[in-house]
Computed example of a mutant assay.
Amino acid sequence: MEKGVPIRAISRCISVLQAINRRGSLSMMEIAQTSGVPYPTACRIVQTLLHEKLIEREPARKRYRPTMLVQSLSHGFQESDRLVACARPHIVDLTAKVTWPVSIATRVGQQMMIRDSTHTMTSLTLNNYYPGYTLPILESAAGKAYLAFASPDEQAAVLEAYRRGEGQVDPLTLQYAESGGMFSDIIEAGVATKGRNPYTATPGKTSSIGAPIFNSEGVCGALVLVFFSSSMKMPDAVKQYGDKLKIAAAAISRDLSEPLSRAA
């Protein structure tokens, strides 16, 4: 194999597994469409993943979902473990107070990846977002909240990657970020927003508010509250939930900044 040339079969298998893991439950046709893999090939890959017990077929319908074995693929990745452990009681408490689901997300390249969420704890959700689901960094409240408080070098690297065509972003959104106006507005407000997000599992039906999370070295993730777009206007949502979100994010940040011996 030539240096730098991927093995297409492996790339397709990863795409299929990522599609199922991100969406939680998909039909065979949805798997092929979401992963961009031809239907016959997707069928063979799904059979392989079933054999390896990384996915399972739902008993009552022809849909496929990830199994607990998928988590074994991330056992070597420890960076977000402490964030999830520190954040869990806070996001559970926040959801109990506001009813809407709350998630923790961290940056992975041009994406924000969900590390933990409370979507399964409330009926006010259209989809259960499991760890591993990703959203474009500049097209999500989590990503904008994170990036506004990132270092200038990190901001520049993300924007340069977008200019090279890496990642999904609306040209006007990119222009707003490049002007510096987006980040200054978010810093002043303390939260970022995204209305009717087209990149979720239910495009356009949910909106979100995000607040940054910090550790002793700087921003390390974001706390995000998701609500139905039809339930209220964004200014009303920020007024009602913005301060609660910031308080929860600050509490997580304090826990993360404690020495490990004290946090334990």
Rank of each mutant, 00 (worst) to 15 (best):
M68P: 01
T118Y: 03
S231P: 05
K205H: 06
Y176S: 07
P235R: 05
L83M: 08
D93M: 02
S117Q: 06
S179N: 12
R61S: 13
G204I: 03
P198T: 10
I45A: 06
N128H: 14
I187F: 03
E166I: 15
S229P: 00
T67F: 01
R164Q: 15
G190F: 05
G143A: 04
S74D: 08
G210K: 01
F77A: 13
T125I: 08
A19I: 09
T106A: 03
A87Q: 02
E166R: 09
H75P: 00
G218T: 02
T67A: 07
A141N: 01
G76F: 12
L50P: 13
T173G: 08
A222T: 02
G210W: 00
S15K: 15
P101L: 00
G132K: 09
S74A: 12
I14Y: 11
D185Q: 14
Y130K: 14
E2N: 10
I247M: 10
Y130Q: 15
L260M: 09
I45V: 13
F183D: 00
T202L: 02
P40S: 01
T200F: 02
S231H: 08
M234Y: 11
E79R: 15
T95A: 00
A96E: 13
S25E: 13
H90P: 11
A85N: 09
L94M: 06
C43I: 05
N197V: 08
C43H: 11
L83C: 09
T106I: 11
M28H: 07
R88E: 13
S230A: 09
R63W: 07
R163F: 02
A192E: 02
N127T: 11
I91K: 01
V238E: 03
G181Q: 09
G132R: 10
G76R: 10
Q175P: 14
K239I: 06
G165A: 07
L126R: 10
S230Y: 13
M182T: 01
P212D: 04
S179K: 07
E58I: 12
M232R: 06
T200G: 11
G218I: 05
I7V: 15
R88S: 12
V92Q: 09
V191K: 00
A264P: 07
P6H: 07
T200W: 00
K62A: 15
V37E: 02
R115I: 00
G109D: 11
S184H: 11
A177H: 03
F149L: 05
I247C: 06
E30R: 13
E30K: 13
I55A: 08
R22Y: 10
R23V: 12
V169N: 03
G210D: 01
R57V: 14
V108D: 15
V238K: 05
S35E: 10
P235T: 05
A156P: 12
V169I: 13
S231T: 12
N197R: 01
R23Y: 13
V98I: 15
L147M: 11
T95W: 01
E160S: 14
L138I: 10
G195Y: 01
P66V: 12
K62H: 15
E217N: 12
K62M: 14
S216K: 14
